[in-house]
Amino acid sequence: MNVIRKLDYGLMKLEEYILSYSIIIIAVMVVGNVLSRSIFGSSWSFANEVSQMAVIIATFIGISYAARKGRHISMSAFFDLAPYPIRKGLAIFIPAVTAVILFILAYYSYGYFLSVHGTGRVTTSMQMPVYMMAIFLPIGFTLGGIQFLRNMWINIKEKDVYLAQDKKDYS
């Protein structure tokens, strides 16, 4: 159990690191390109592709991190008004179904990864294989699915209603 907890903590730190540096990289690329073009008269041909890759990584790795923090956007009118037993039921049902959908998407995106790996398509300017971007989709969906399973499990285990592993519902 302790090992799993440590592993999870390590994973969370890794997610934080990835999210944070993705944003910093996007800023460096966009600013660097402007400065290089206006000062030295030459654009960074790679800037756009690097930024795009950072956005893709942040978005898909972010599925899991936002799930931990209970920051996925939802329309919770019915949930908020429902009496405890229904709310408790939904707090188990919603993350369970969400996890299933995410695992299905993980499977599809693995298929997409294999497909672009097969064609060997490369990006325009850096000539980087596209599968290097696509690989973050199955990883992101799988980690996200696991996180929602944990959100389900804590609601089975504990008496209170949890919106996420790290976020109790106080309403």
Binding site: L19, I23, A58, T59, F60, G62, Y65, R71
Partner: peptide, 12 residues
């Protein structure tokens, strides 16, 4: 990191 979290929640 806080920017990244918000970005991820919107971009997905």
């Amino acid at each position: 990191l806080s920017t990244g979290l918000v970005t991820a929640a919107v971009f997905i």
